[in-house]
Design a protein around this nucleic acid. Structure first.
Lengths: 146, 146
DNA sequence: ACTCCTGTAACTAGATTAATTACCGTGATT
DNA sequence: AATCACGGTAATTAATCTAGTTACAGGAGT
């Protein structure tokens, strides 16, 4: 896949830990839900651990959420696994001797930042609790149909 | 460069056409400002033409903006060259037999769309006129210092 | 006709992601 | 203590996308 699915997979991972808390949460089991490899899961867990979102113990299959669900926003997950990734990227190699090439970077950086901030503000409003709630609601819809 | 600079380069291109209107606007000249190849410029112009933002004539170095500057928003440029590109991408391959894997896509698609819409709303508020104005302001600052 | 230029296709090189393989160290169990 | 299951992490590979390059057909003006 071209565009990174780290963000999506991380949300998946965290929701999985919550919903299947108590199960034997090996990286293998989690990987089977995301349909990826256990190594990818462990790498994601490493980033989430560094960001203080989960705690893990080497050798023990028991990752635990480090905060209440309502205090884990989608934005904090995004920052944890995508770092300071820019949604829009400015071409940094333009001709400085041209009026346009010499100033476009400064101008675009500002507007791009505002657009990114708008998106991030929206991500900040949604918590892992909302995600888990919605997943269960969607599942309930399916169960009714059956 | 991994992340596409098509969007940035397209804004650059359009601003260049406006600011240097009247000059001999060959793809070579424009490319020298963006510091890319003439072919890349022509490819971008092709997309902008299809989107109705400029008009060009094969064989003649004279691209022209098809609308007033105030009616060309950053969002319309983004759509022209990035199509319906998703800023955040949902992992489409998850285990449907798992409560999380089977419902996460539906849930995330919704929240991702809202975040993208927020960013796009911000892009829609800025026009090429704003960009050109800002470029000239930045240039004026430099001229004063000299 | 000649020249300059656009419009495009085809190919190449570089970068990034995710998958894979491999190995070390931890922790629980016996 | 020995063993086994599992996390942590590095290195390699394959797939995908972007931009750069080369090449060439066709339009426009002299």
């Amino acid at each position: 896949m071209r565009v990174s699915t780290r963000f999506s997979d991380s949300i998946h991972l965290l929701a999985f830990i919550k919903i299947y808390a108590g199960s034997h949460l090996t990286s293998d089991l989690i990987a089977s839900s995301i349909e990826t490899s256990p190594v990818v899961v462990r790498r994601l867990m490493g980033k989430l651990r560094h960001a203080g979102l989960i705690t893990t113990t080497a050798g023990t299959a028991q990752p635990v959420l480090a905060k209440p669900l309502t205090e884990i926003s989608l934005l904090s997950i995004f920052y944890a696994v995508e770092g300071d990734k820019a949604l829009f990227s400015v071409d940094t190699k333009t001709n400085p001797d041209c009026i346009v090439g010499g100033n476009i970077q400064t101008v675009l950086t500002q507007y791009y930042q505002e657009a990114q901030t708008a998106a991030e503000a929206r991500l900040a409003k949604t918590s892992l609790q909302d995600i888990v709630d919605n997943i269960l609601v969607e599942q309930a819809k399916k169960d009714v149909i059956k």
